[in-house]
Amino acid sequence: MLIDWNELELTVEFVSSGPVGAHEAVLCRRTGKFLLHTELFDDADDWPEDADDEEKYLSIPHKKELDLGKALVFEFARQFLPEEYDEIRRIFSKRGAYARFKGLLQRRKALDRWFEFENRATEMALREWCDANGLTIRKGDPPAQEPEQR
C-alpha cells in the first residue's frame, strides 16, 4: 500500500501526543486513509467499531512502541553527553523528565543536536515499521538517513 510520508509523521505525532492509548489512529487497508480517535472528544461516530480488525486496519504506533522514548534519550546521552549520562538517568527517574532534560540540553548547547538525532531516529523507526507492514512511501518524500553517530 502506498502512503504519504507527511501524513504518517503527523499521525504518529498525534498518537504520541499523550500517554500510550490516550490517542489512537489506524490506517484503513482498503482506502489508505488514516483515521484518528481520542478520548478527549466524543468522536466515536467517526471511529470504526471494528478498528481492532487487523485485516481491515493497521494500528499506528506510539513513539514509545518504536523505542523512541527514554531508550533514545539514553542512547543520545551515551553518544553525545557521556559526562552527563548519570545525571540524565537521574532526571528520568522522576516525573517531568523531558522538561528538565531539555533544560540540561540548552545549558550544554546540545538541544539542536538532540532534535536532529531524535528526528533521524524517528524516521528510521518509521521506515522500518513501514517495511515490516508492507507499506510503501510515496516518491518525493524524504530519503532515509542514518542517525548521527559520534
Results as ranks from 00 to 15, higher is better:
R127I: 03
R113N: 06
Q106A: 13
G103F: 00
A99Q: 12
E118F: 05
Q106C: 09
D112L: 11
F117L: 08
A125L: 09
W129M: 07
L105A: 02
D112G: 10
A121Q: 12
K139T: 06
L135Q: 09
T122H: 04
M124F: 02
Q106M: 13
R127Y: 12
A121E: 08
L135R: 09
G134H: 07
R108C: 10
K109S: 15
R113Q: 08
W129V: 03
Q106Y: 04
L135I: 09
A110Y: 01
L104C: 09
A132V: 00
R120Q: 15
D112Q: 10
F117G: 05
G103Y: 02
R100H: 05
E123S: 11
N119C: 08
Q106H: 11
A110P: 06
N119V: 04
L135W: 11
N133V: 05
A125K: 11
F101I: 03
K139Q: 10
L105Y: 01
I137Q: 05
T122C: 12
L126D: 02
F117N: 00
A121L: 01
I137T: 08
D131K: 10
I137P: 08
T136M: 14
T136Y: 07
K109V: 06
G134V: 13
F101H: 10
K139E: 13
A132K: 04
M124T: 07
G134A: 07
D131I: 01
L126T: 05
L105R: 01
L111E: 11
D131C: 01
E116G: 11
K109N: 14
C130H: 04
L111W: 00
I137M: 10
N119F: 05
E118R: 14
I137L: 14
R138N: 10
R127H: 10
D131M: 00
E123T: 08
D112P: 02
A125R: 14
K139N: 00
M124S: 06
T122A: 14
N133L: 09
K109M: 12
L104M: 11
R100F: 04
A132R: 07
M124L: 15
E116T: 15
A110S: 12
R113K: 14
D131G: 01
L105D: 03
K109E: 13
E118I: 01
L126W: 04
K102S: 11
R138C: 01
E128M: 06
R100W: 00
W129D: 09
K139G: 04
C130T: 00
R127T: 02
R107H: 10
